[in-house]
């Protein structure tokens, strides 16, 4: 494997809710830098190995479906800009940390926008294909995302990485900048939370079906 040990400027930090500080001055200058062949190859490898992973976790972290593509790209744009300083052995961890912040930012922006279009969205929801048109899998995914949406973000992140992505708490801890014990306890809480939410959703669905059956 490659170089071990974090470059000095990369210090563990709180990943989840840190707001972006747009680097306005650097936007134009640094952005125009050409990338050498080696870096390009590295970026390519990072991209190919992690794009689907990053895309998926962004969605599960609550980025709205229509924004996931853009957010995923944002993550890799950050990687492209920092390609010279990213430790190749920890590329995935770097991308994950970046994805968390991008997700947090996108969620905030999304929340603001949702306030404004809520009514219209309701209309759209009712115009969506009826349940028979959705496959079981799609419905399962929708249910899952709806449950995740009700979880606190910090629990959700740990839950997704552990239960969906199959990461170990050992790997999750540094990627989130958390002690491993914290990851373990959040995971425990996340599972309890998820369990409760799933049970309630099931009960709601059952009563909803019941009502619907009576109405028709």
């Amino acid at each position: 494997m490659g170089p071990v040990g974090a470059p000095e400027h990369m210090k563990p930090g709180v990943a989840a809710e840190m707001p972006f500080e747009p680097d306005v001055a650097g936007l134009l200058t640094q952005a125009e830098r050409p990338m050498d062949q080696g870096s390009r190859a590295d970026l390519r490898t990072m991209f190919e190995e992690n794009y689907a992973f990053i895309w998926r976790i962004l969605r599960r972290f609550g980025v709205a479906p229509q924004n996931v593509d853009d957010s995923a790209q944002q993550v890799f744009l950050v990687a492209a800009r920092k390609i010279d300083v990213v430790d190749r052995a920890k590329a995935r961890s770097f991308l994950l940390g970046t994805a968390l912040r991008v997700a947090a930012e996108a969620r905030r922006a999304g929340a603001r926008a949702r306030e404004e279009v809520r009514e219209d969205l309701d209309l759209v929801a009712s115009a969506a294909p009826n349940p028979e048109q959705l496959t079981e899998k799609k419905r399962a995914l929708e249910r899952f995302d709806a449950l995740l949406d009700e979880m606190p973000f910090e629990l959700r992140a740990v839950f997704v990485l552990y239960e969906v992505e199959g990461m170990s708490t050992h790997d999750i801890a540094p990627a989130l900048g958390l002690p491993r014990g914290t990851v373990a306890s959040r995971l425990r809480r996340a599972r309890e939370e998820f369990d409760g939410l799933a049970k309630r959703a099931k009960a709601r669905a059952a009563s909803g079906l019941h009502r619907e059956g009576r109405a028709s």
């Binding site: 930090g13 944002q74 430790d87 970046t98």
Partner: peptide
């Protein structure tokens, strides 16, 4: 987006 702060990526 201007990139995240340099120290942002957790290691």
């Amino acid at each position: 987006h201007a990139a995240a702060p340099l120290n942002a990526p957790t290691v």
